[in-house]
Simulated scan of single mutants.
Amino acid sequence: MLYNRHRFGAQVKVVGDNPDSAQQMGIDVKRVRVKVFVFVGIGAAIAGTFSVMINFTWWPTAGDGYLLPVLASVFVGGTPTWGGIGTVVGGAIGAVTVSFIQTGVVAAGLSGFYVQFFNGLIIILSLLGHKWNQARYR
């Protein structure tokens, strides 16, 4: 809601697309970037707090195991590496698809190493699909 229906969201879009143009339009680029970093930091702090509350423990590398499935979910959901055209709905569909694939690999009796292999394979195939099927906007 903040991103789609508020002036700050429009400023974030403009600054992310072309900071020089945003500066010429009178937008304080440094202030917008600081605000975005603050919002991302608050979100990360809340996620970390919930992780500690769920797991009853804390370790600096606790989220490292989520990196590959998250990247696979984002790329399967339709967000290309150059950014700019991804959607939240696409990311959710990508997350469901990757979780179903992980569940299927485990249900087939394969070890956890194959889950990582298929996550990497999904990332490579989806990036190749993005390269061949979508026009590059930048």
Rank of each mutant, 00 (worst) to 15 (best):
W132A: 13
I27N: 04
K35E: 15
I123Q: 00
R33A: 03
F100E: 05
G65P: 08
V15S: 07
Y66P: 05
S126E: 03
S99T: 08
P19A: 14
I101S: 11
S111E: 11
G86M: 00
G94P: 08
V70R: 07
L125K: 08
V15G: 04
I123D: 09
S126C: 06
T79W: 06
A107T: 15
G16I: 11
G48A: 00
S51R: 04
G65V: 07
V115W: 00
S73F: 03
D64E: 14
M25L: 14
N119F: 05
N18Y: 09
V40E: 05
D20R: 11
G9R: 01
V40N: 10
V14I: 15
W82R: 10
V115N: 02
Q23H: 03
V15M: 02
P60E: 02
G9F: 06
Y137F: 14
G90I: 05
G77Q: 13
F117R: 09
G43H: 02
I122D: 04
K131Y: 15
V98S: 05
D64T: 07
F100C: 14
Q116F: 13
V96H: 07
A108R: 04
F75C: 07
N55I: 08
V52L: 04
G78Q: 12
S51G: 12
V115E: 01
A135E: 13
F50W: 04
V74D: 03
L110Y: 05
T97D: 03
G41E: 09
A62I: 12
D17L: 07
D28A: 14
G9N: 05
G120P: 00
N55S: 14
V98Y: 01
S111W: 04
F56I: 10
I85T: 15
G109C: 05
N133F: 15
Y66Q: 06
R7S: 12
L2S: 01
M25T: 05
M1T: 07
V12E: 02
I42Q: 03
A108W: 10
I27H: 03
A107K: 14
I85V: 15
L2Y: 02
T79M: 13
I46R: 03
A108F: 09
I85C: 12
R136L: 07
K30F: 09
A45R: 05
V74Y: 06
Q116G: 09
F56L: 15
V106F: 13
G129L: 14
V70Y: 09
G109M: 01
T57A: 14
K131C: 06
R31K: 13
